[in-house]
Design a protein around this nucleic acid. Structure first.
Lengths: 242, 242
DNA sequence: CGATTACTTGAGGCCTGTCAATGATGGTGG
DNA sequence: CCACCATCATTGACAGGCCTCAAGTAATCG
């Protein structure tokens, strides 16, 4: 059974911007259904257009660009509340692929109706642009981490971010969050080799700062993690939910 | 004397998406004036809001994030046609600073009227979102270059991109384009040290592929530059002009 | 129970950063 | 007009962070 937007569990969270009743009603018309995806499923493919756009309702995934020689750059991680397909929507084709890394549930929208969102609901159009701007901020931070930080700092930064982003959507359980990724995914996201990523994670574990096992990430010392990452406590900007 | 949007020299270029007469008329009302900036001027500051938004009409600049320890990550280069201040517009504050590196002329808009753009002109709102999406694509490419490529490839990629982006706005003169940056700027953009950037540029010069002197970038062997950069001939997506 | 996938661990080397010094250029003030 | 200073480009020496190669363990699966 498909969740109605009026019952959407994400929308009530502080992490997401408020939405008026009329906006919710509009979204119920915009939403066309739901899609379930299993780990490994490619939800959108780099270089292709798509008739559908999505919002992640449950589960996690990742965005990546693939190079000719088989290497890839992970450019982001998909978590509940994230919108998928903005580029396909407004530019015709995706510049990256999106793949599920856990079981996922996605709200689906018709791309062909995206224009009606702009023409009939400027508030939602504004929010969609905000989503794009938030994504831009994230990419700027990631670029800064990869360009300027050493391996240990990069990893600490990434794990710190993960924890708080997931906790913000209610997935935190004590000091841990689900984390359905491989070390290779993190390595590809941070521009590090798998081997070096592994050794750095070991060091962080030996220092009793974080542990990452069995698809779960647990933070044992928030203070030191923040110190390692060179960030002050989480300041996640609230974002609109599409 | 301020240029009217109807006379805007940029709008007619193939690089920018078509704009209807009514859209041009709307933009004339949206535009509030022009601003001149000299090299070194900070146009927008990281972490601050702004009452104005801009479009680069002439000249060049760069976007960068500054770290506490003084290092910085250059996250982009501003060239004619680029919109400045999207984040300040929709999120309240910029996540990076924008600074002029040459004399610049900027169209100015009131941030307070951004909402009217969404509510009264969905076509323009759509275009603004496209601008954000294009920026996202660029950041994804940059992240891939910094995360996956070696120094020489990164630099070749960047120079190749610069040339074609500038040529697309009519600044190409034979095989060269204006290039008002320092080697430090390129180094900070690509996550390289100044010294290594310098040595890699020397190598590219010795190999007679490109020369960069006197604020000009000249390409001497396009084929080899593309080969070094691992890209096929330029495929710049057309973008909307705001 | 062989094949596959993911995680670990060790060894060696290179790409790139850091340190340091020198030129080249342009602006400034006496 | 020249000493002085600041900025930027250049070059050499050296070290180190990270990559690559290689091998081994553990867990899952048909």
């Amino acid at each position: 059974m498909s969740t109605k937007c009026s019952d959407c569990p994400l929308r009530k969270m502080d992490f997401f911007a408020e939405m008026s009743a009329s906006e919710v009603a509009f979204m119920e018309g915009f939403k066309t259904g739901e899609l379930e995806a299993q780990p490994g499923t490619e939800i959108m493919a780099q270089g292709q257009s798509s008739t559908h756009l999505f919002t992640c309702l449950e589960g996690m995934g990742l965005r990546h660009r693939t190079l000719e020689d088989g290497r890839r750059q992970v450019i982001g991680f998909v978590m509940p509340g994230d919108f998928i397909g903005l580029q396909a929507g407004v530019m015709g084709e995706m510049d990256h692929s999106v793949e599920a890394t856990s079981d996922m549930r996605l709200c689906t929208f018709n791309r062909s109706e995206l224009w009606s969102l702009f023409s009939s609901n400027p508030t939602r159009a504004y929010d969609l642009t905000r989503v794009a701007a938030v994504e831009e901020v994230f990419l700027g931070e990631a670029l800064t981490a990869v360009g300027q930080m050493q391996a240990r700092v990069r990893i600490a930064w990434a794990l710190h971010r993960f924890y708080h982003r997931l906790a913000a959507v209610g997935l935190g359980d004590g000091n841990s969050v689900p984390f359905p990724y491989r070390q290779q995914d993190l390595a590809d996201a941070l521009g590090l080799s798998l081997v070096h990523t592994n050794k750095t994670l070991s060091a962080l574990r030996d220092d009793q700062i974080v542990t990452w096992t069995e698809q779960r990430l647990a933070i044992h010392d928030f203070g030191r993690l923040e110190a390692e990452a060179g960030v002050d406590a989480a300041k996640l900007v609230s974002r609109p939910l599409i």
